[in-house]
């Protein structure tokens, strides 16, 4: 029973990893940008949530309503003012600028919030359970998993069914010709980053509700998100969800064998996939 239970926990945790990954996957899909500061931005969102909940006495889930637009605006400005200037044939500038941003964010957060671990108190919801057959499952992990699926589904819908998604795909295919259609590349990229950061906001709040976090938590989240993207296959959002779940389950199995092996087991799952299916388990198929 322990095994079944911990694998179930792993699946639910995978939803959170998919949230870490979705924003990463989205901006890579639109502008081939890999944001090294992605994890630190998740942590920034977590700290924003902390400030808002403690200042206004809001429930963390209510704080999402403020943090999501705030992060989206930060994302838009970040892309429009800084990252757009780095995009081109050379991959070094965006990599190094986002790496610099990562150092800046980590130390900025350290300066403001200190290195003390923080956690968002979600109240009754964090301890409530529901019976699922013979198992008891936490309401909070279940809710987070549901929201993750909802976020992935919404992104999928935006990407394939809306004018914004058409603009993303067209710009991704051929930015120059997209400009001839009246699409301003800089604006489209900034919107993509804004959307990515909106997802990051949800991921950050969930992270903060689930575990304690510090200004140094970012790189770990980036790596989990990255592993989920690669396991699932580039350019496939549902694949990313599957990748997150596989990562979560691998970690759960590792932890069940030896608590010290939790993270390692996830990394090994990633390496195994990389070795046998370098394009991921579910590489992009045309819709």
């Amino acid at each position: 029973m322990d095994w079944v239970n911990s694998i179930l926990q792993g699946i639910l945790l995978g939803g959170l990893y998919a949230l870490f990954a979705a924003g990463l996957s989205l901006i890579f899909g639109v502008m081939r940008l890999v944001n090294i500061a992605h994890g630190d931005l998740i942590v920034l969102a977590a700290f924003l949530g902390l400030t808002i909940t403690s200042t206004f006495g809001l429930h963390p889930l209510a704080a999402i309503i403020i943090v999501v637009p705030a992060m989206a605006v930060i994302g838009y400005l970040l892309q429009a003012l800084i990252l757009n200037r780095t995009l081109g044939d050379n991959i070094l500038p965006p990599l190094l600028v986002t790496f610099g941003l990562s150092v800046l964010l980590q130390n900025g957060l350290l300066e403001i919030y200190t290195a003390d671990p923080q956690k968002l108190n979600a109240g009754a919801i964090s301890t409530a359970n529901v019976a699922l057959g013979p198992l008891y499952v936490g309401v909070q992990p279940l809710l987070m998993f549901g929201v993750s699926i909802g976020v992935i589904a919404s992104l999928q819908w935006i990407f394939y069914r809306t004018a914004l998604g058409r603009a993303f795909r067209a710009t991704s295919d051929n930015a120059e010709i997209a400009q001839l259609m009246g699409l301003n590349k800089a604006h489209v990229f900034a919107l993509a980053m804004a959307l990515s950061m909106a997802v990051v906001a949800v991921a950050g709040i969930f992270l903060a509700m689930r575990t304690s976090f510090t200004p140094a938590s970012g790189p770990g989240r980036l790596i989990f998100g990255f592993e989920a993207v690669i396991i699932g296959g580039l350019g496939n959002l549902w694949g990313t969800l599957a990748g997150g779940v596989i990562l979560g389950v691998a970690q759960a199995i590792g932890a069940q064998i030896n608590p010290g092996w939790q993270i390692l087991a996830g990394h090994f799952a990633f390496l195994v996939v990389l070795a046998i299916r370098p394009r991921g388990l579910f590489p992009r198929v045309e819709h």
Binding site: R166, R169, A170, S172, D173, N174, E176, I177, A178, Q179, L180, M181, G182, L183, N184, K185, E286
Partner: peptide, 23 residues
């Protein structure tokens, strides 16, 4: 910029067609 010029009513059929492949 190209997108501003396009909005003024100048369109181009580019060399090699260049349709958007994922659309």
């Amino acid at each position: 910029r190209a997108d501003q010029i396009a909005a003024l009513g100048i369109a181009m059929v580019p060399e090699g067609r260049q349709l958007f492949a994922s659309l």
